[in-house]
């Protein structure tokens, strides 16, 4: 089967320096991958680079989505192809209601006029599953939302936009135990009913408890040091990242000697 997402030897930098070093990974349609790593490893950066955040400069490598080279595509073009990024810190947009934003986004994405009735039904159902009060639909996007509400609003967008691949950047951070459970349930629905693929970026494992995981990747200081199956999550849970931090240092030393 062809890969849905293929990251080939991707390097990226930002003004302060290089932050991704030749990262490669591939993900097939419908699969769930987890990207773990210590703080500052570049996990969020990878998520943003995959989505095309212009703050980062790709200095090498390629990103293929459904076989199409999207490395130079703007974020809206990637979204239209079926990519989605749930933000760790969703932005506030005063004067733009969540509902009006969703309608616009769906219209832009599909290029079709919106079927208002279907949209309303779907929105209602998605909000109910997320245990979001319906008043949020008419509130300005993320303005005055608590951290948890913002994360729920991200997953609500995921449910409504139905991308083929969702990158979830630290969706569980800032959520209490109950909220993690609620959010996981929606993600599971996306995974199972919509057959959506996931790249879940996290440094904890709470959100993974009720989700099926196919592969786990470990990122340390911008290097992808290990790819394994779901059991890797358990291992990290017990032993932390220390072993992989050392591994990365050794690999770097070795690489240095070769150079």
């Amino acid at each position: 089967m062809e890969n849905l997402l293929e990251v080939k030897n991707l390097s990226a930098d930002i003004e302060e320096g290089r932050i991704l070093h030749g990262v490669s990974l591939s993900l097939r349609d419908g699969e769930t991958h987890v990207l773990m790593g210590p703080n500052g490893a570049g996990k969020s950066t990878l998520g943003h680079v995959l989505m095309g955040n212009p703050v980062y400069h790709v200095t090498g490598g390629q990103v293929l989505f459904n076989g199409e080279d999207v490395t130079d595509y703007s974020a809206d073009k990637r979204a239209k192809l079926g990519m989605f990024l749930s933000f760790q810190n969703p932005l506030e947009v005063p004067g733009l209601t969540l509902e009006s934003f969703l309608r616009n986004a769906i219209r832009e994405k599909t290029g079709q006029p919106l079927k208002i009735f279907t949209f309303k039904k779907e929105l209602e159902a998605a909000m109910e599953l997320l245990q979001m009060d319906e008043s949020y639909a008419t509130r300005d996007l993320n303005v005055g939302f608590s951290g948890g509400e913002k994360k729920k609003a991200e997953i609500l967008q995921l449910m409504m936009l139905k991308p083929q691949l969702a990158i979830l950047d630290e969706t569980d951070s800032g959520l209490d135990v109950d909220a993690v459970r609620t959010v996981s349930e929606s993600i599971r629905k996306y995974q199972q009913q919509m057959k959506g693929a996931l790249l879940i970026i996290t440094h904890s494992t709470r959100i993974l408890e009720s989700l099926h995981v196919d592969y786990t990747h470990i990122l340390v200081r911008g290097h992808l040091v290990r790819t394994g199956d779901a059991s890797l999550v358990e291992e990290i849970n017990e032993h932390g990242f220390e072993k992989y931090i050392e591994e990365e240092q050794k690999q770097e030393q070795a690489a240095g000697e070769v150079r």
Binding site: M51, A75, K80, L91, V93, G95, Q157
Partner: peptide
């Protein structure tokens, strides 16, 4: 905010549309 523009763009909205949405939102009162 460039981040806010990227945020809207990541949902499939074009850059010019994203700017217009932010500015119109600002003007909405």
């Amino acid at each position: 905010s460039d981040e806010a523009i990227f945020y809207l763009m990541s949902r499939g909205i074009s850059e010019s549309e994203a700017r217009a949405m932010i500015v119109s939102g600002f003007a909405s009162p």
